[in-house]
Simulated scan of single mutants.
Amino acid sequence: MAKHPFHDVAIVGIANSEQARVLEGHDSTTITFQAVHRVLADTGLTPSDIDGIAAGPFSGPLTYYMRNGPAWRNHMAPSIPIILDAASAIATGQCHTVLVAHGSAGVYTERASTAPWTRPAHEFVVAYGMFTAAEFALIAQRHMHMHGTTPEQLATVAATIRNNGHAHPEAVYHGRGPFTPDDILASRMVADPFHLLDCAMTSEGACALILTTRERAQDLPTKPVYILGGACDSFGPSYQHPPAWDLAGPSGRNNGYTGRWAAQKSFAMGELGPTDVDVCEFYDPFSFEIIRQFEAYGFCEEGEGGDFIMDGCIGPGGRCPVTTDGGTMSFSHGGAAVQQLQRVIRGVEQLRGTCATAQVPDAQVAMCSNGGAGALFTDVMLLGAETP
């Protein structure tokens, strides 16, 4: 396999804080610090071992309180692009060990309304009822019109992911199931075709990761997981404009399959393809998004995603197990950044072989994603149990 600079970077630490619908006694800072303490414990590292921080608004405070400056830092809210940025900083010698962390608590207080990060705040869309569920529903409806995708297929995705969370002891919705597709379809309509149980929930929590060089990883007690590839697609700012399936630039690539270019780039970096992926830790804001991603990433042809997921392939024991901890529908949805990092954390758990539930036997390659066509972006990362 041709070497890529990412291949010399490993994820050596992962941690979730406690997760709950509401975390009494916590704010975003305290819950983030809890995740930081846990990830340091996971690796056996101390603050003095860290020389890079990527923690959004917590980057400055963490650097100060950990007394580990001067340090490389990134102030953007963490997600796959920030993990890739941290990996690039390590690969180019700007730093050698980076802490990535984020948390959210006490932000969503007006619970009679949708979560604040899903509400547009300008006159061109707010007056028409535009919010995240409606944005993603527009994308789903277009696919249903073009290809005949059915509500039953969407409900099969939702039931599969929610049952993964039902079984996970640390999931916010642990023990709430099991669910059948009929249960999903019986829940109230939110934005056609999405019923309530087709949609992500909201919760509070934090998580953290530590990345370092391949050489340093060999001296740590945890099993390192390597970055095989990663890339990002964007068609504009999220949650500001009504999304369109056919939105496209000069390249001809359209928003309906955002993430296709990122997946192709990621696979090329690792000389891999969809058939090499053992576990699909896909971002699950709404049920249709999983169907769309399987098509965008090349697991099946355009228009075939609905049929693709109906034979059990995405469930435990299937050939493409998806979002195995319950994702945003059931495990946790702690603000705009936390759940995006959690897809990578679950991918690392799968490759370490340490999942509390739904462990894929001998998993070697995990594909993780963020975003979706309703948000006008999709980010992709490939993780490997071995370095190329």
Score class of each variant (00 low, 15 high):
Val380Thr: 07
Gly229Ile: 00
Met269Ile: 02
Pro151Thr: 15
Val322Ile: 14
Phe377Asn: 13
Ile161Trp: 13
Ile345Arg: 05
Glu152Gln: 15
Met381Tyr: 01
Arg21Cys: 03
Ser17Asn: 07
Pro221Ile: 14
Leu228Thr: 01
Leu247Lys: 14
Cys320Ile: 04
Thr29Lys: 11
Gly25Lys: 11
Asp233Tyr: 03
Ala296Trp: 03
Ala217Ile: 10
Ile139Tyr: 08
Arg176Thr: 15
Pro316Gln: 14
Arg352Ile: 04
Pro47Ser: 11
Thr324Val: 15
Ile90Ser: 06
Thr275Gln: 11
Leu382Ile: 14
Thr275His: 08
Thr97Ile: 05
Trp261Ser: 04
Ser79Lys: 02
Val380Ser: 01
Ser79Trp: 00
Thr275Glu: 13
Arg216Lys: 15
Thr258Asn: 09
Ser59Ile: 04
Cys300His: 12
Gly25Asn: 07
Arg188Ser: 13
Ala55His: 01
His96Lys: 08
Met144Ile: 10
Ser79His: 00
Ile80Gly: 00
Glu135Pro: 00
Asp8Glu: 15
Thr32Val: 07
Met130Ser: 11
Asn254Leu: 02
Glu271Trp: 01
Asp233Pro: 07
Tyr128Phe: 13
His166Tyr: 15
Val98Gln: 04
Cys280Glu: 02
Asn255Trp: 01
Trp245Asn: 04
Pro242Val: 12
Ala336Phe: 03
Tyr257Asp: 05
Thr275Lys: 12
Ala10Asn: 09
Glu123Arg: 14
Ala231Gln: 09
Ser332His: 14
Gly306Ser: 07
Gly259Glu: 05
Gly106Phe: 08
Phe267Gly: 00
Asn16Met: 09
Leu62Trp: 06
Glu301Asp: 15
Glu204Tyr: 08
Asp49Cys: 12
Val9Phe: 08
Lys3Tyr: 09
Gln264Met: 11
Arg343Thr: 15
Met1Ile: 07
Cys300Lys: 05
Phe282Glu: 02
Ile50Tyr: 04
Asp379Gln: 06
Gly334Gln: 03
Gln364Met: 07
Pro221Met: 14
Ala20Ile: 09
Thr46Tyr: 04
Thr324Lys: 05
Ile161Gly: 13
Glu302Ile: 04
Pro78Gln: 07
Asp284Ser: 15
Glu152Tyr: 11
Val277Ile: 15
Pro5Asn: 13
